[in-house]
């Protein structure tokens, strides 16, 4: 069936199956920043924005994206690059596989929280797993990015 949505500011009409997940639809249309790693809505790698809010694209049917505004990291080149520069200066992307979803959550957090404390940052991002870094370097990068000490 056909859905109409806005993807990274561009209106599109896509054919999708009734049981197709948004993460798979996005990948099949070439948005290869979308990674999945858990099948149980636990890891946060597939995070995109739906109408500006960060959401797990593995846990949403593509049909539910009808009429919505979807943003992937491909749609935020400037903001993503700005934070990625800081993240990779820390070495805290490591394998990089969780980074796009993590960055989408960080950018959403920046929009939602004003001057967040360390505790609030950690709480906001708990749904983004990372097996490489132990999270400390990510926190250093976020603090630099947000200008909080």
């Amino acid at each position: 069936m056909q859905i109409e949505l806005t993807i990274n500011e561009k209106a599109v009409k896509w054919e999708v199956a009734f049981d197709e997940l948004l993460a798979d639809t996005l990948r099949s249309h070439g948005f290869l920043s979308i990674k999945t790693a858990c099948d149980t809505s636990c890891c946060g790698l597939c995070t995109v924005w739906i109408d500006g809010k960060s959401r797990l694209s593995c846990s949403i049917l593509s049909l539910q994206a009808h009429g919505k505004k979807i943003t992937t990291i491909e749609g935020l080149p400037k903001e993503a690059e700005e934070f990625a520069q800081i993240l990779s200066a820390e070495g805290a992307e490591q394998c990089g596989f969780c980074s796009p979803g993590f960055i989408m959550s960080v950018l959403a957090m920046k929009n939602e929280l004003v001057n967040p404390s360390e505790e609030e940052i950690i709480h906001y991002l708990t749904g983004n797993l990372c097996r490489c870094t132990g999270y400390m370097g990510q926190l250093r990068a976020i603090k630099t990015f947000l200008g909080v000490a």
Partner: peptide
């Protein structure tokens, strides 16, 4: 020196560089 990884920006911003991609 703490030089950033040469592939750091590509992998962090989701460029198609992994096996499935």
């Amino acid at each position: 020196h703490s030089i950033r990884k040469i592939d750091g920006m590509a992998i962090a911003t989701g460029k198609p560089v992994y096996t499935e991609d």
